[in-house]
Amino acid sequence: MKKIILFTGGIETQEYFSLQLANAFTKIGHEIFLFDLNEEEKSFTALCNFIEPCNTIMLTFNFHGLNNEECFYQDGKIFWDEVSIPCYNIVLDHPFYYHTLISNVPPLYTHISIDLGHEAYMKRFYPYITRGPFLPLAGTEIEHKPWVERSKDIVFTGNYTPPKNFDEYITRLNEDYTVFYHGIIDDLIAHPDQDMDSVFVKHLTREMNDLSDDNLKLCMENMIFIDLYVRFYFRGLVVRTLAESGYQVHVYGGGWDLLECNYPENIILGGPLDSEGCLKVIADSKISLNVMPWFKNGAHDRVFNSMLNGALCVSDDSIWMRENIIDGEEIIYYSLKEINKLPSIINKILSNPDKGETITKAAYQKVKTFHTWDSRAKVLSNLFSI
């Protein structure tokens, strides 16, 4: 079987995913090398000894190892190209975050999307890039309590940034651009079912109808602050709506002390946690609240982690989620268009513990069967053998 290179020492979440995959690959017989990005020189020497020509691949998240690291990029040459190692990159964000990096990948590169909308974007704007299979994220199971014994009713794991913090980017040019950017933001907030890039293209071509795809890519790369603005707008609105309806929401992540709320005492600040810490609080909560990071045809790992650790996931939806996770049986969906209905949804769940427990048991079975890192490792292992 192929020998696999993975990375540690980068973004904590991505390292955690890599370690889950490393364990899963080991179970099915792959030999693993963990390249420590914090110890590049030491790791590079060991890496060269690990590589077996024609039988080694590199798997990364978000371009680690493909981001102009000095040990891999020297004298205009890319190490992976020089040693003929295929590179597989699971990209956790929308591709418009990575225009420059995508444009400079080595020849033996495969781009793997976690959202079918991202896959469609790659097909249109980078048709020459090899694309792997659509691969949703996955869940990690830890020890967890029965639903009725949990100490927290509602938990949200993730950071918060006040949308006003992005005003410096919205207003950085002139009044015309400010109005243009706010028009896109207002469109996304009013119609949250739309793909981010589709809305970008709609507004850009309305203003400048002769834009080529190359120019559209460059424009979208410079508009990623809109994605962040809208993401945190809805994240804050969901938590604020519940807090102002009398529900205590335990939030874990940075920035939540900056959320404006009429009843801040209902927002219980837990502070930032690593991936394992987030799993532990989810495993002790009845409801794990999710707000999708604008994945309109995929799913976030928070969904799978919640379902696999016995919390009832309450989330906005996506096309893929509606087709693969059953509302009212394995998950409870709410609409970003009708967040005012969310307190009533929460009340029904907490008022009917038998129903809540039934849903969490079905959710657990769904993810345990189809959406673990073991499942993803098998798909990837088959891909590497092609």
Rank of each mutant, 00 (worst) to 15 (best):
I5L: 13
G9V: 13
G9T: 13
G10K: 02
I11H: 09
Q14Y: 14
Y16E: 15
F17D: 04
Q20E: 14
N23D: 15
T26D: 11
G29F: 05
D36P: 00
L37V: 11
N38Q: 11
N38C: 03
K42T: 15
S43A: 10
T45N: 08
L47Q: 07
C48G: 04
T60P: 01
N62F: 01
F63M: 06
H64D: 12
F72S: 07
Q74V: 14
I85K: 14
I85N: 12
I85G: 02
P86I: 00
P86T: 00
F96R: 01
Y97L: 13
Y97D: 05
Y97T: 14
Y97F: 14
H99F: 05
L108S: 12
I112C: 12
I112L: 13
S113D: 12
I114T: 14
E119V: 06
E119K: 14
E119L: 13
Y126C: 09
Y128V: 10
Y128T: 12
R131Y: 02
P133I: 14
F134R: 02
A138F: 05
T140P: 10
E143V: 14
K145I: 05
W147T: 06
E149V: 10
R150I: 05
D153E: 08
D153T: 10
F156P: 07
G158E: 04
P162L: 12
I170R: 04
D176V: 13
I184A: 03
D187R: 00
D187G: 01
I189H: 14
D193V: 10
D197K: 05
V201C: 07
H203Q: 06
M208I: 15
N209A: 08
L211M: 13
S212K: 10
D214E: 13
L218S: 13
M220P: 09
M223E: 06
F225H: 12
F225I: 06
Y229M: 08
Y229E: 10
G236P: 00
V238C: 05
R240M: 01
L242A: 04
V251L: 01
Y252L: 04
G255W: 01
L259E: 00
C261P: 06
N262G: 04
Y263P: 00
L269S: 06
G271A: 07
G271M: 06
P272L: 01
L273H: 05
E276N: 03
C278S: 11
I282S: 04
D284G: 07
K286F: 07
P293W: 02
F295V: 01
D301I: 07
V303M: 05
F304E: 00
F304I: 12
N305A: 03
S306I: 02
N309T: 08
G310M: 07
V314F: 06
S315V: 01
S315P: 00
D316Y: 05
D317A: 14
S318K: 15
I319Y: 08
I325V: 09
I325D: 02
I326K: 10
D327H: 09
E330C: 11
E338G: 02
N347P: 00
K348S: 12
K348M: 05
L350S: 02
N352K: 12
K355V: 04
K355S: 07
E357N: 11
T360N: 08
A363H: 11
F370Q: 09
H371V: 00
K378C: 04
F384E: 07
